[in-house]
């Protein structure tokens, strides 16, 4: 390929395409980074709230065993209604669950940004590919 003469116009178009691809990559990287940072901060805040709420959690010895908190009877929110109730009550575990949900949504958001990116790159086949993935992901949440 490299020993053929290159039309400067084609080379410029190629470079422009490369630039666009690079912008898409940077957008995706940014979405992942923001999603990760926000969810870590929320999870950390929730964890601190859990420990502050109950002094037995933070005791170094003579406190309770963690098994009492993670065993089969431990109560924690596992539906959106329960989550909003836990958040309204200011429970630390509700905040942690919110952070975990934000973490779960990060890849979904990444796919959504990819769809927009390929629209911007004017690449219809890949728009369809990423749109399909996004729809299946959204459907999976409703099926669950």
């Amino acid at each position: 390929m490299s020993n053929e003469p290159v039309d400067p116009a084609i080379a410029a178009a190629d470079a422009a395409m490369q630039d666009k691809v690079r912008q898409v990559e940077i957008a995706i990287s940014l979405v992942l980074r923001i999603g990760v940072i926000v969810s870590v901060l929320v999870i950390l805040a929730g964890l601190v709230m859990m420990f502050l709420h109950d002094p037995r959690y933070a005791a170094l010895d003579g406190g309770i065993s963690f098994h009492a908190l993670v065993g089969g009877h431990a109560e924690f929110p596992h539906s959106l209604t329960q989550l909003s109730r836990a958040l309204a009550a200011g429970e630390g575990r509700g905040v942690v669950v919110l952070g975990v949900l934000l973490l779960i949504l990060t890849p979904v958001l990444r796919v959504a940004v990819s769809v927009l990116s390929f629209v911007y790159e004017k690449d219809p086949p890949m728009v369809l590919v990423t749109l399909f993935v996004l729809l299946v992901l959204i459907a999976s949440f409703f099926l669950a």
């Binding site: 993670v70 924690f76 596992h78 575990r93 942690v96 779960i104 890849p107 949440f141």
Partner: peptide
């Protein structure tokens, strides 16, 4: 793998398998 796991994460969440006290240290 993040997208693959996200596709079944809703199911695990609804079944009450995501315990915050375990998930928090693991995630961080």
């Amino acid at each position: 793998i993040g997208v693959t796991a996200a596709a079944s994460a809703g199911m695990y969440f609804a079944r009450g398998q995501i315990d915050p006290l375990i998930a928090a240290p693991v995630a961080i």
